[in-house]
């Protein structure tokens, strides 16, 4: 059993290497450091001097793979590939274009991201499951049909609309919550309220619809009919049988998302001015800061792979029938 988990974990390594090579190829070979310098300095009338100067200050003035000017091992380590790509595996991301340490920035920003993302995720999950159960309870009746129609409409609304309308109505018109901002710790609950509410609301359409189809499929199975034939009450069937078994696919699929919660949400964070990783990415994109984007690609990949691994774990844990060899 343990050997299996270990093998699954090792399976992540070639993928990580692949992602690393891909981003290196994209950022340093498709788009050379010279192009990068041109973009930052403005395209027109840039002297070769200025470009060279920019490359030196940002540490791009090295050969790609092999530094012929150095001896021994440093010929390989004093290259862009080593400093920019290999070092990432040691979680050393270097500096962003404005001179800050990316690793420290990421550590500082993961907390605020989590403070929004975790409550949104938990409350959203609970709400969606509750709504889905309600629709299944009234299946083929009017509450079900109304629920399905509403879910289809909710999922057709742009997430930008939820955020902009929510911010406008709740914060500006009714003044129930601050428009934006963030305070770390318990005192920050006022700032967390609205983003979480909006995140939950915007996820209802897709989530409840999906869980409804899972529970409905479960409710059509033979063991449910047997339970009903034995004379079990409808509520007992729904909560003890349908819910419990229906949760298996729900749990295994949501576990994959858990690590990615650290990444936060791009839109919510940038609209509400939350200093998390989501707004970090948005700012980096706006400033065309390639090192930050590369670092976030790496982190995101690692988190995704952890999620994949957790999914495997969860399969064995939730469903005892799953035997792994």
């Amino acid at each position: 059993m343990n050997a299996y988990w270990l093998r699954r974990l090792l399976y992540a390594i070639p993928i990580l290497i692949g992602v690393n090579l891909l981003t290196f190829w994209l950022f340093f070979m498709v788009n050379s450091p010279e192009d990068m310098a041109r973009m930052h300095l403005g395209n027109k009338r840039v002297t070769a001097m200025a470009i060279a100067q920019w490359e030196v200050t940002h540490g791009y003035d090295k050969p790609l793979f092999y530094n012929a000017g150095r001896k021994g091992l440093t010929a390989w380590t004093d290259t862009l590939f080593y400093t920019r790509s290999i070092r990432m595996f040691a979680l050393d991301f270097g500096q962003s274009d404005d001179g800050r340490d990316i690793g420290r920035e990421i550590r500082a920003r993961a907390g605020p991201s989590l403070m929004i993302a975790l409550p949104s995720f938990l409350i959203g999950l609970w709400t969606n499951i509750a709504l889905a159960l309600m629709m299944v309870w009234f299946r083929a009746g009017w509450p079900d049909r109304l629920g399905v129609a509403l879910a289809a409409m909710l999922m057709s609304v742009s997430s930008l609309f939820y955020i902009m309308a929510g911010q406008f109505l709740v914060a500006r018109l009714w003044r129930l919550a601050p428009v934006s901002g963030f305070v770390p710790g318990i005192d920050g609950w006022r700032f967390v309220l609205l983003p979480v509410l909006i995140a939950v609301l915007s996820g209802i359409g897709n989530g409840s619809r999906w869980y409804r189809s899972i529970f409905l499929e479960e409710a059509g199975k033979d063991y449910v009919r047997t339970a009903r034939a034995k004379g079990l009450s409808e509520s007992r069937i729904l909560f003890r049988h349908v819910l419990r078994n229906g949760l298996i696919p729900v749990v295994t699929s949501t576990v994959a998302v858990l690590p990615l919660l650290f990444m936060g949400s791009l839109l919510t964070e940038s609209f509400f001015g939350i200093p998390g990783l989501g707004s970090y990415v948005v700012d980096a994109i706006a400033a065309q800061d390639f090192s930050v984007v590369r670092a976030m690609v790496f982190i995101g990949t690692v988190l995704y792979l952890i999620g994949l691994w957790l999914t495997d774990l969860a399969y064995g844990w939730v469903d005892p029938r799953v035997r792994l060899s």
């Binding site: 993928i15 990580l16 692949g18 992602v19 891909l22 981003t23 994209l26 950022f27 498709v30 788009n31 192009d35 990068m36 041109r38 973009m39 395209n43 990615l260 990444m263 791009l266 990415v281 994109i285 065309q288 390639f290 984007v293 590369r294 976030m296 690609v297 995101g300 990949t301 995704y304 792979l305 994949l308």
Partner: peptide, 26 residues
């Protein structure tokens, strides 16, 4: 496809679009 899938979609898109913008400018 596992490798491509492992990269958060929006970041990969961001990377590619930034590169494209550079290409168009140059």
């Amino acid at each position: 496809y596992t490798t491509l899938n492992a990269i958060p979609g929006i970041l990969l898109i961001a990377a590619a679009v930034l590169l494209m913008q550079g290409y168009i400018e140059v």
